[in-house]
Amino acid sequence: MFVPATQPVHVEQLVFKGLKQGLTLFVPEKESFVYWLEVLDRQLDQAKGFFQGGAILVELGERQLTPGELAGLKKILAKYRIRIKGFNPVQRKKLNPRPEKQLPASSGVLLIKGTVRNGQRLEHEGDIVVKGDLNPGGELVATGDIIVLGALRGIAHAGAGGNVKAEIIAFTLAPVQLRIAHIFSRAPEGRKGQHGPEIAYIKGEKIVVERL
């Protein structure tokens, strides 16, 4: 077989596919995420000029990213002026396939494992679910809902782009600031958060918070 001398043959490559939702990068579930980031960097570098900017989707399968991993991915894509417009466009087989409500058809759910810390900001077109806390100084921005399965103490902006139906749910809701669509609300000074989950949504022209 003819192999050009400069081209290593054994390197694993990431797959890009053109789905109907848009160009999608598939990150396999095997190997560490950091491993694939290196592969991606090399691959984009070789394809320089081909990928000039633009927005892609990223399919992660069952993989959950830490805030640091997501930041790493964005950093590499930014080098090639590529933006992430959504995650997980492929409808997954559910373990428990009930034909109930469908997930929002938009760009799927971004699932974050671990605490979103001071100085970390995550943006996503779709819903964000955090399996951890959102700490003061941390920021979440979603065009859909935001769900924090821990304490929400930072800044959350749901319905970014104008969806007034968006909701913010947290197990402990003690935010610095909430924002849904175009409406702001500052938490009353010293609000510690109820014990138990609460939901914030727009009622009239105001954000209200209720026990879930």
Binding site: T66, G68, A71, R117, N118, Q120, G137
Partner: peptide, 17 residues
């Protein structure tokens, strides 16, 4: 404590988890 939280996030970026 806020600064420590920020540092913990930055350590993640450096793969110290």
């Amino acid at each position: 404590v806020r600064d420590a939280d920020r540092i913990i996030g930055l350590l993640q970026d450096k793969e110290i988890y």
